[in-house]
Write a protein that binds this DNA or RNA. Structure first.
Length: 458
RNA sequence: GUGGUUGUAGCUCAGCUGGUUAGAGCGCUUGAUUGUGGUUCAAGAGGUCGCCGGUUCGAAACCGGUCUUCCACCCCA
């Protein structure tokens, strides 16, 4: 026998039941994207390497799947490069394309290429797979879907507010209550770095700060020291660890802390506006909280930073994230186009819904009615009946072969079919059919020309 | 990329310090039941023990490599 087939690390097959559940999430997300006025686009699964490389930092470059050139890709490499065994110089010679790493950079590329056809502000959504050569863990895969909604060409803070509402709308309809939408602002982080005299270490500072919930205050201080922050700077960060009270209380404290930084003050002002407006309008099921330690995401965020945490008690990292990037298209030569967007982590949302049992009960009911097969003549009558049902939109099927009735019933049972129809010799003579409700075991007889009565009773 | 962990029947897992013919539950097939499933009873099928190599008289078990799973880092959805 041939060796058992397998699929690459970090990839998955999806069973019918899984696809249906994933589509359930997709459909709800899509529906709300559309009601918020977003338009769909799609981009290729692979891009030119130079579109992607260098956009996600060194770490990101490492995680990008590169595609080998076609043909005899090694023959064009000069001997010096080849024998150097330096993948940094060899890779560009043998690989000119790479798999999409996220949807944001391809979107920026799209906006620049189509700038003359686009009416700004442009609100787009995109649901497509992306690939990362990461080491898999729970809820982390090498191939996974991103669901992104971004707005470009508007620097209005109303967009941030709408995106919070969008998160709330989607998670409310998914019945996932109590998600925590965490909000921060890059300008506040810059402002803090400025105030403590560590502008040049902004990234190191934020990466360390971001780990607060994981490694605690002492851990963060230690990491900051390791990353080169002076003891004086670290001491000045101290007040951040003890921020408490309502969102507006925290913002008040930050305002005081950042009064000497123009950038920081601007950030506080922006967040205050967002928080005030949201509080005024209210959210359906999510909660919004300021979190100054939130720094995740890519370096291109310049304003708001979002991250959505799963409800308390669920062991899962973030199930969504996003932010504002003032100059994303700048890397492709289009200046002064501001963008802000959010992303839904479909795979993780799936795992959370599964864990909490929040998928609708009858979601994977792929068949409503199964007609048993008693033989050629009977099957023909069954097929006619099934056609009539299908025309009315009922998911119906005929068992294709004259197997033992016991086996056919078992099949119906395993497929979770609620109604089984029997048309045997006797029914054929009487122009009738018998409907068995699988759950209760009740049987009822209908006339073949009164299919409507049965449909009405479904 | 670093460190660890896992892999035995379709599925979930037992299998002792290396020792005959590798087990269970569930599922599957067949029958009790030639027109009635989900309950019950009986019988049956199904495994190169992830793969490659090594140690040994003898390996599912020990060693090395490799792939895979999950976990902690890095980073991130």
């Amino acid at each position: 026998m041939a060796q058992k087939p397998s699929i690459p690390k970090g990839t998955r097959d999806f069973t019918p039941s899984e696809v249906i559940k994933r589509n359930y999430i997709f459909d709800i997300v899509k529906k709300h994207f559309q009601t918020f006025g977003f338009q769909p686009i799609e981009t290729p699964s692979f891009e030119n390497s130079d579109t992607l490389m260098g956009k996600y930092g060194d770490e990101g470059d490492r995680l990008i799947f590169k595609i080998l050139n076609s043909g005899d890709y090694l023959s064009k490499v000069d001997d010096v490069t080849f024998s150097s065994k330096n993948s940094g110089t060899l890779t560009p010679k043998i690989s000119e394309k790479a798999l999409r790493y996220d949807l944001t950079v391809p979107f920026a590329r799209y906006v620049v290429m189509h700038q003359n056809e686009i009416d700004f502000p442009f609100k787009r959504y995109q649901i497509q797979p992306v690939w990362r050569a990461d080491r898999p863990q729970k809820g982390r895969f090498r191939e996974f879907y991103q669901c992104d909604a971004d707005v470009v060409g508007s620097d209005s803070l109303l967009q941030e507010i709408e995106l919070v509402q969008l998160y709330d709308a989607v998670f409310t309809e998914l019945k996932l209550e109590g998600v925590n939408i965490k909000l921060n602002n890059r300008k506040i982080l810059s402002g803090i770095a400025e105030v403590i005299g560590a502008q040049h270490l902004l990234i190191d500072f934020t990466v360390a700060l971001d780990k607060l919930d994981k490694i605690g205050e002492e851990g963060v201080k230690k990491e900051m020291a390791e990353r080169g922050l002076t003891p004086e700077a670290i001491a000045k960060v101290e007040p951040l660890f003890s921020l408490s009270g309502s969102n507006l209380d925290q913002l008040q404290a930050l305002k005081e802390l950042l009064k000497d930084s123009d950038t920081g003050s601007k950030g506080v002002e922006e967040l205050t506006f967002i928080v005030r407006t949201i509080e005024e309008m209210g959210l359906q099921s999510a909660q919004l909280s300021i979190d100054v330690t939130l720094a995740r995401g890519l370096n291109y965020y310049t304003g708001a930073i979002f991250e959505v945490g799963a409800p308390q008690g669920v062991r899962m990292g973030s199930i969504g994230g996003g932010g504002r990037y003032d100059d994303l298209t700048g890397i492709f030569g289009l200046k002064n186009v501001s963008g802000v967007g959010i992303s839904f982590g479909l795979d993780r949302i799936y795992l959370v819904l599964e864990e909490l049992g929040l998928f609708p009960e009858s979601i994977d009911r792929s068949l409503q009615v199964l007609c048993l097969n008693f033989g050629d003549k009977e099957a023909l009558a069954a097929l006619k009946l099934v056609s009539a049902l299908r025309k009315k939109g009922v998911k119906a099927d005929v068992y294709p072969s004259k197997a033992k009735i016991q086996k056919q019933f078992k099949y119906a049972n395993n497929r979770n079919v609620p109604y089984v129809i029997l048309i045997g010799e006797k029914e054929l003579e009487e122009n009738s059919f018998v409907v068995k409700r699988m759950e209760s075991g009740d049987q009822q007889t209908y006339a073949l020309d009164a299919v409507g009565d049965f449909i009405a009773a479904l």
